[in-house]
Each structure stands twice: as C-alpha cells, then as structure tokens.
Design a protein around this nucleic acid. Structure first.
Length: 804
RNA sequence: GCGGGCGUGGCGGAAUGGCAGACGCGCCAGACUUAGGAUCUGGUGCCGCAAGGCGUAUGAGUUCAAGUCUCUUCGCCCGCACCA
C-alpha cells in the first residue's frame, strides 16, 4: 500500500489528464441509454476570473452528473461562455484593445480555472455567445419573432443608465439604479426594439404549473408577471362624446368612485386641451412629472401630488353623479389604461390623495372607519350605499357589477398583467447586431437567412455616445446596405441585442453545438430536452430564467423545439458571503480567490468545503479555517490505507454503518443536502478509525460515496486498491435494507415526557410487546419509583413514555 | 405597504411531532515530538464540586411528547413596490 503523504497537486493534475485522455465525461452520441441533462448557468467570463460562487453551483451539479453517469445515464453536463457584455467592452475601451481579444483571454483563464477544479463538463460541446457561428442563430430566432410581430420598434420612455450610456430593461433596474454599474437611471424617450413578452404572460404563468421549480422561484415569477382580474369601465365625460376607460380590480366599489385620475402622460389630456381651464397649471405639472425618474416617482414620492382638470367632469356610471377628473403621477401610464376611478374609502392611495385634496370619501363596503383609514378587506366586507349591490359580499358584488356593466355596454371583465414588454435594444458595440435594415420604401426589413450572421464589424472606437447612438452608427460603410426587398438604399440597425439574448437559448445549442444548418437538430433536441435539472442563482429568476422560458415557448409555438418548457427542475444555491458575513466585493476587501484555496488545500478539499459549509440553498459566510478542516478530513481518508486489511468484503462490525451511509449519502445528494451527506461520510470515517482496521471492501464503499464530491483523491485511492476500471466508470453502490438492521436498540425512557433513562430492547419490539414486557423491566421499575402507570406510549426503536 | 423566508452553543450548522446541539470550525487538557499552523487521545450548551436544574428570539396554546404545529410580540433576511 502507498505510504506517501497526500499531495493534491499531483493527484489532481494526474486525474484531470486521465479524464481528458479517456474522454470520460463526453455525452454519448448514441441515444440508446436514458439521458440526463444537468445544467448550470454558463459564466460571464469577466476579467476578475472565477469567484468562489461559481464552484458552488458547478460542484453541486457535478455531483449529480457524476452520480447519474454511474447510475447508467447518458449525461450531458455542458459549459460555455456568456461572453457579450458591458464590462468587457468597458475594459477594452479603457485599455485600447479589442473586446474580442479581451474575451478570448478571459475565456482561456476561466477555462483553466474550471479545469483545475475537476468538473466533469463535456468540453467538446462548449459554446460561446460571441462566436458568429453561434449568434447567427440568436439573430435567426430574433427574425422569427420579428416575422411573427413579436419584435417591434417603438418610441418608449426607457430606463437610461447615465454611466453606461445605454438603455436598460425594466428588470435591469434595481432600487432605481443600474443593476450592473449602480449608476443613475433616468427616463429618456428613445426609439427601441421591443419584444412582446406580454403576449406570453399567460403561457408563462400556466407553464409554471407543469414544472418542478422550487416554490420561491415560481412565486417570484408569478409576482413578476402579476396577473390580476377585474373590469374595464368606461366613464362618460360631461358635455363631451369622449370617455375615460379605466381598469379596476374592484368593480364592486364603483358606487364609491368619487373622482378620477389620469396619468400625466395620458393622451386624453391633450385631447381635452381646449376645454381645460387651468391649462398652464396642468402643463407645468406634466413637465415636472416627465422630469422625474421612475425612482423619484415611486421611491421618493409617496407623498401624493396632482392637479385637477378644471372644467372637466366625468359621470360615475353607477350613481350618475358628476365627479372631478385629476391628473397625478401616482397613476402610471404603463399599466392598465393609464387612468383610474378613485375609490378613496377602499384604496389606500386614493384615500391619501383624497385626504390631501379634500375630495369626498364615500363608504361602500361596511366594516371599517373610512374617515380614519381606507378599508381594504375584501374577505368580510358587505356592500352599502351601492344601490343594487347593497347587502352583498365583496366577491358576489364584483361578479354582479361586472355583469351589470356588460349588460349596459359600459365595461367588461378584464385580465391585466404587470409584466411589460422587453426593451431589447442596446446602444453599445459588444453585442449581437440586430439583423434588420431600414428601407425608405419598405420600412424595417429582415436580413435574409442566407446572409446571416450579420457580423459585428471592427470599429475604431467603441465608446458609447452621449447622443444615445450605438458606436456602430459611426461605421457608415457598414450601415449602408441594400434593401433585401426592393434593392433600394437602406440602413442597417445599429443597436445591438442585450446580454440576455445569447443566454436565452444556449441550453438548446449544447444538444447539437456544431450544427451549421439549424440552431440544433430536432432529433437531438427530442432526446436531450427538456433540461432535467437546472441550478442557478435566484438573481436570475425574473431575468434570464423568465426570458429563456419565453424564447423557448415561442420556439415551441413555431415548431423549432419539441417541448413547451425548457427546464424540468430548477433549484437555487445560496450566495457565498465574505468571512465578515457581507457580500464579497473588491471594495469590501473580502474576496476569496479560488486559485489560492486550490493552491493551499487542493481542488478536492475546496469542492468538499463548498458543499459542506452549510445548507446549499442558504447564503453562507466563507471560512478558510473550515476549508482546512475539510482538507484534514481528506488527509484522514488518505491515511485509511495504513490500517487496510486485504479482505474484499465489508467488515461485519462496520457493515450496518456502511449500508446506512450508502443510503444516507445517496438520498442526500438527490435532495442537495450535501452538508449532511458529507457529515455522514465523516462519521463513517470516524467509525473506521474507531474500528482499528478496515477491509478493502470498507474503503471501496467510502470511495464510491465520496467520489462525486472529491473525484481526484478517490480515483487515486481506488487505483491503489487495484479494483479495476476507474471509479467514474463504476456503477453507483446500492444499499441493503436488511443489512441496516441491528438486533437491539437503545431507547429513551421518559416519565411524563422527560427523559429519565435508557434501556436496551430488541430492535423489532412492537407496541404490544412493549406494553406487556417493559413495565416489568428492572430499570423502568427503578425509574417509576413505585408510581402507577396511567398511560404508556411506545415509539418503536425510539422511546418509551410513561405517564404517571 | 404587500408577498415569502428565517431566529438553535463562541462560530458554520444537525434534528419524518419522539433522546436538542449530528458533522465540522474554534477552544481546553494530555500524548508523541528538537519543533508544530502535523498527528493522536480526551473534553467542550449554560449554572453547579456534585446530585441536579435550566436551555432552540418572546409570551401563550394544542399534545403523553414541541426547535418542529397554532396564535402573540420582537428582530433579521429576500423579493415586489403608487400595478388601481
């Protein structure tokens, strides 16, 4: 047996070489076996290199993938690069190099870092979103959406990041600032490409019922889509043919609508211009509102502001009473109809507004004190002051009023979503060109498929411009094009796609990564899809995860993919925090570089620690001391060889513990309870040392279980046992329930629920036997001290509780 | 404000309603050592010499039995946020 000390550096390099030479982790081309497709979010190859967060997800899925291979599955565990993006572009600008060169360097570094950690990726399938052979298909998908009317250009107030000089999607604005750089975000009206994700709101919602995502993810997506049911109602204007249409979720409260509010941007304000008596005041308010960023309008301005439209009155269709019309920026032009009926008695915002401006508050649902606060309870309320609704409960009144409105032609049932269309243009260089040209005669025309990809041209300057135009706009030769339809003069679109484009379908490309003719052959997609298990960060729930579900569902609708949902199962890992419990960041000085840990302790110890440090789905502070403990464990495993007996089978004394460990570890891996799986293996090793000597069979069992977490050291020890083919190619061990059984167990004896002692009883003792035999047990008699037993509770294998 | 989650030793954390603190870190003592940031042995929730008592944020409740279920209060985290 080997007696050298454990040297991870040489062991790990050796096995990484062997795996590469043997093509150990290549997905098999044959479709004969059952498949398993495990996915982790492909990294953005930043200049900072890998951080300790990446391996947490990668190791977890690596464990699953390695176990699945050994369970006989054909496993696809791929990796690639989400390589377009602003940081690379900004770095390139600063250092006067081409973003492509920066990207290549970063990818090379990331790849070597990932390889050093021994992940069982199929490197032959790696994809790179910046590769024209890849983004050809990103452009192709965009054109299909364009054809179907899902991509459209619109003048939109967009979220403009002042520092990136670029428009952002709603999802990219976090706490009112740019998600990426933290810069100020203002509203700016720009002509933008949009994707009609709102057309898919219901499908995206319904699809959630068919997939196995953790509840938190489903809930967050549901909230983000934000479905609500209510009614649209038309309010007539006094002395005018115009009407104001509103959306409300509370049609039952129509009798309590005492005024109306339009958003400042509502078109009707222009339409009524001639009749508004305080036009100057209204105009001033609109200008002031337009200057506010969304941040100011929402976060900072809970205090209501507004101006009445003097001379304008609407008619409440339920009461027939004239009511005033106001404009206020608490009503958003982007939601519903951009106008509301205000029911101050039963809506907190309307209530605050009415109190501030002295508008009438009329109670229509009994149960609160509406002069003191809005009463919003819909469960118990009963309608009052509401004509034909009086006496009805809220739910019933809603239905009755909706029916009444439909009957009178005043409104109808309506479903609304908070989800908004996806702003898809970016005014930057390092992204996929949008494959459209604008012809003076034909308008926007798709670049024909045989001319894809529209490649990103080399430009002299990448700097974003203050005018809000992409740097590509300065490339006049490139911009000039012939219209594919009429041959006339045309100009290319110079905006590029957002980073989310390439990542919205990358998992499809892995199924058939080198296909020159289509995004992936249907035959391959039919075999590999859907992704069986996708692990990633919670921060992508309403961005990448939602976007990619949208794209996938669209591709399903046009017949390009075989299943409606891309991911069968979605789990999420917790973030690794700095040792001080704060988020790791350069500015906080608490960043851990995985390279340093691998150099000191080895990749296996690093992997082991990342899986052991705490519950997988919880955020957790880093502790290098804890990582050293994991290295100590591996040292102990290595030294087990010193007490090895040549026998093959399991030691009789250790067999029950080994079978229990096989069961525990096998089950815990599946539930991503990696920390307790590892604790069980540590306990087993403690048992081994306590036993004094172990057989080859004992050690082999441990190596089987530990292999997915610490693949290098286990292969090395396995080889030293001389048990044949490498461990990665060995079947996953089974446990024998019968072997778990022990003859006797120690159970607790409780008196009145408090533990007073322990006794040995046969493991298979039933409640009847216990009731018959245990009251006479000497230790039980002693604990009872002569008191009579009133009640006896026996939990097999666990405890005896005596009530006295 | 709305929605979700969580409060367990010095620390990370275990615990199908059934022996709270597994496993690890740290710490204490000892052994082996020229040496120890190596290794091994023992100890380590709190109070107490002990017997014993007290302990899972808080207060109540259900139960033979509650960290776990129900309600209260306090605190923390995450998501959304004037979405009518």
């Amino acid at each position: 047996m080997q007696n050298q000390t454990y040297n991870p550096a040489s062991v790990e390099a050796k096995w990484q070489r062997v795996w590469a030479e043997q093509g150990a982790f290549r997905a098999e081309a044959s479709h004969s076996k059952p498949k398993f497709y495990g996915l982790i979010e492909f990294p953005y190859p930043s200049g900072a290199g890998l951080h300790v967060g990446h391996p947490r997800s990668n190791t977890a899925m690596d464990i699953i993938a390695r176990k699945r291979r050994r369970q006989g599955y054909n496993v696809l565990y791929p990796i690639g690069w989400d390589a377009f993006g602003l940081p690379t572009e900004n770095y390139a600008i600063k250092n006067h190099v081409h973003p492509r060169a920066v990207t290549q360097e970063n990818i090379a570094r990331f790849r070597s870092q990932l390889e050093a950690l021994g992940f069982s990726f199929d490197w032959s399938r790696q994809v790179d979103t910046t590769d024209p052979a890849y983004y050809k298909w990103t452009q192709w998908i965009f054109l299909r959406m364009f054809e179907k009317g899902l991509a459209y250009k619109a003048e939109m107030p967009v979220n403009w990041c002042v520092s990136c000089k670029c428009g952002l999607a709603n999802e990219e604005v976090v706490d009112g600032v740019c998600e990426r750089c933290g810069g100020e975000v203002v509203r700016r009206v720009k002509s933008q490409w949009m994707l009609r994700i709102t057309d898919y709101a219901q499908k995206l919602l319904d699809g959630l019922d068919t997939v196995d995502f953790i509840d938190k993810v489903k809930l967050q997506q549901r909230n983000w889509i934000g479905r609500s049911e209510g009614a649209e109602v038309d309010f007539a204007l006094e002395g005018s043919p115009e009407t104001i249409r509103v959306y409300t979720t509370r049609p039952d409260t129509l009798f309590g609508a005492t005024y109306m509010v339009l958003s400042p941007e509502h078109p009707l304000v222009d339409g009524l211009a001639g009749r508004i008596q305080n036009a100057d005041e209204v105009a001033a308010y609109r200008v002031a509102a337009s200057r506010k960023s969304d941040f100011e309008r929402t976060e900072l301005a809970k205090d209501k502001t507004g101006v009445p439209l003097a001379g304008i009155r609407a008619i409440n269709p339920a009461t027939g009473a004239p009511i005033p019309v106001w404009i206020s920026d608490y009503v958003l032009v982007t939601y519903g109809t951009g106008a509301i009926m205000a029911v101050p008695a039963h809506d907190t915002r309307d209530w605050a507004f009415a109190k501030k401006f002295g508008l009438p508050i009329v109670e229509v649902v009994a149960g609160g004190d509406v002069q003191a606060a809005a009463y919003t309870d819909v469960a118990d309320g009963v309608l009052v002051n509401s004509g034909f609704l009086d006496g009805l409960r809220v739910a019933e009144a809603k239905a009755r009023m909706t029916g009444w409105l439909a009957e009178k032609g005043l409104g109808q049932r309506k479903v609304n979503y908070k989800l908004r269309d996806w702003v898809f243009s970016r005014q930057r260089y390092w992204g996929e060109p949008i494959p459209l040209v604008r012809c003076e005669h034909c308008g926007w025309v798709a670049v024909p498929e045989d001319q894809l990809p529209v490649e990103l041209p080399d430009v002299a300057r990448y700097e974003p411009t203050d005018s809000g135009e992409s740097p590509l706009a300065a490339m006049t030769d490139w911009v000039r094009a012939a219209c594919p339809k009429c041959g006339g003069p045309a100009q290319r679109e110079t905006d590029t796609m957002p980073q989310w484009a390439g990542s919205s379908w990358y998992f499809l490309r892995y199924a058939d990564p080198h296909n020159p003719d289509m995004l992936a052959a249907l035959r391959e997609l039919q075999y590999w899809l859907p992704v069986d298990w996708y692990n990633g960060g919670m921060e992508h729930t309403t961005l990448h995860l939602l976007y990619s579900r949208f794209w996938h569902r669209f591709l399903y609708d046009i017949g390009a993919v075989p299943c409606p949902e891309p991911y069968r199962k979605r789990t999420s890992h917790g973030m690794i925090l700095g040792a001080n419990g704060e988020k790791m960041s350069k500015s906080r000085g608490n960043v851990i570089n995985p390279d340093d840990i691998v150099a000191e302790l080895g990749a296996d110890a690093f992997r082991l620690y990342e899986m052991f440090m705490g519950a997988f789905d919880q955020p957790i502070p880093w502790s290098t001391q804890g990582a050293r403990g994991c290295r100590r464990f591996l040292d102990r495993v290595w030294r087990l060889a010193d007490m090895l007996q040549p026998a093959d089978g399991l030691s009789p004394a250790l067999a029950p513990a080994i079978h229990a460990a096989i069961k525990k570890v096998s089950e815990d891996y599946e539930r991503m309870k990696f920390n307790t799986a590892i604790a069980a293996m540590m306990s087993l090793v403690n048992d081994f040392y306590a036993a004094g000597s172990i057989t080859k069979g004992d050690l082999a069992a441990l190596l089987h279980l530990l292999n997915p977490v610490a693949p290098h050291i286990t292969e090395e020890l396995w080889q030293s046992l001389g048990l044949g083919r490498p461990l990665y190619a060995q079947p996953w061990p089974a446990w024998d329930e019968a072997a778990l059984a022990r003859d006797t167990v120690e159970i607790a004896v409780q008196i009145g629920g408090k533990v007073r002692g322990r006794i040995q009883v046969p493991a298979d003792m039933t409640a009847e036997q216990a009731a018959a035999e245990l009251p006479g047990h000497p230790r039980v008699l002693e604990l009872l001290g002569g008191k009579p037993i009133r009640k006896l509770i026996f939990v097999p294998g666990r405890l005896l509780n005596l009530v006295v």
